[in-house]
Amino acid sequence: MDSVFLSAQPLGDWEFVWQQRQFFVEGTRIAVELTFYSIVLGFILGLPAGVVEAYGGPYSKGVVRPVGVAIRGTPILVIIAITYFAFGVSPAFLAATLALGVRSAAYQSQIFRGAIESVEGGQMEAARAVGLSKLDAIRHVVLPQALRRSVPGFQNEFTIVLKDTSIAYAIGVAELLKRSYDLFSLQTSAALEVFLAASLIYFVLTFSVNRGIEVLNDRVAIPGGNY
């Protein structure tokens, strides 16, 4: 924080941004952490939810589906605000992780449901014909294929969560955009430079994640493709 106060003397605007680079780096670290924990939480909740939506009975589906619809129909800003202001989850970083994670779960469940449903019915049937129980068939035959097919869906999901960490600004999490805003209020003439710098960092992050997932997708592909 010290460097922020030291920089109060007039500086060229790009110079100002460069001088505060450490501040951006910290913000980037927090944005990345927030993304990572949210995606993990989303996976832990979203995978079982997706399985329930694909295979569940009327009661389990009757619970999971409407909850998913409600979460997906509510702005992430409102979800973050409810978590932090209404439920009083603290610190703000935890509130943002929970909100982004639960929302991500609602979307990941759809990725997994779609992937599961894209696995041909014959796979389940053949597994059952060999004598596997339904649960074993899901675990050893359907899910290994469904998880591979869900990888491309994560490109989108990662990008959305990463970008939406910026909305944690609303509850004061010191992530990238919040820090940019703080810098901007220190030197208002540097508004363009500060926000463009932050945007550039976000862009580099989303771009790298997308390429990374493409590489991952090639790595986990079944040789010869799906038949």
Binding site: T159, S166, L177, A191, Y202, F207
Partner: peptide
């Protein structure tokens, strides 16, 4: 397209509102 899709909407709003 890629620049807009790769950056947060809120950052874009800040650029428009505060910087321009």
């Amino acid at each position: 397209i890629e620049l807009i899709r790769g950056t947060p909407l809120l950052a874009q709003l800040f650029v428009l509102y505060y910087a321009l």
